[in-house]
Simulated assay, not measured.
Amino acid sequence: MALMDAARSFLLIVDVQERLMPAVHGNEQVVANVARLLGVARELGVPVRASEQYPKGLGRLVAPLREHIPNEAISEKVHFSYAEAPACQAVLAQLEQPQVIIVGVEAHVCVLQSAIGLQQGGRDVFVVADAVGSRNPRDAQLALERLRAEGVSVVSLEMVVFEWLQQAGTAEFKRISRQYLR
Rank of each mutant, 00 (worst) to 15 (best):
M1I: 02
A7D: 04
A7H: 07
A7T: 15
S9F: 07
S9K: 10
L12D: 00
D15E: 04
V16W: 10
V16C: 14
E18D: 08
L20A: 05
P22D: 02
A23S: 15
V24H: 06
Q29E: 15
V31G: 00
A32D: 11
L38I: 08
A41D: 05
G45N: 05
G45I: 07
R49C: 11
S51W: 11
Q53D: 08
Y54G: 08
K56M: 05
L58A: 01
V62C: 03
V62E: 09
P64D: 03
Y82T: 10
Q89Y: 07
A90P: 06
V91W: 03
Q94W: 05
E96K: 15
E96F: 02
Q99G: 07
G104E: 11
E106H: 04
H108W: 02
V111H: 14
V111M: 01
Q113H: 02
S114Q: 02
A115T: 00
A115L: 01
G121F: 14
G122D: 10
D124N: 03
V125Q: 11
F126V: 13
V127I: 13
V127Q: 00
A129W: 06
A131Q: 10
A131W: 12
S134R: 09
S134H: 04
D139V: 13
Q141T: 09
L144R: 11
R146C: 01
E150W: 12
V152P: 10
S153T: 08
S156N: 02
E158I: 04
E158T: 09
L165W: 12
A168S: 12
A171G: 12
E172G: 06
F173D: 04
R175A: 14
Q179F: 00
L181C: 05
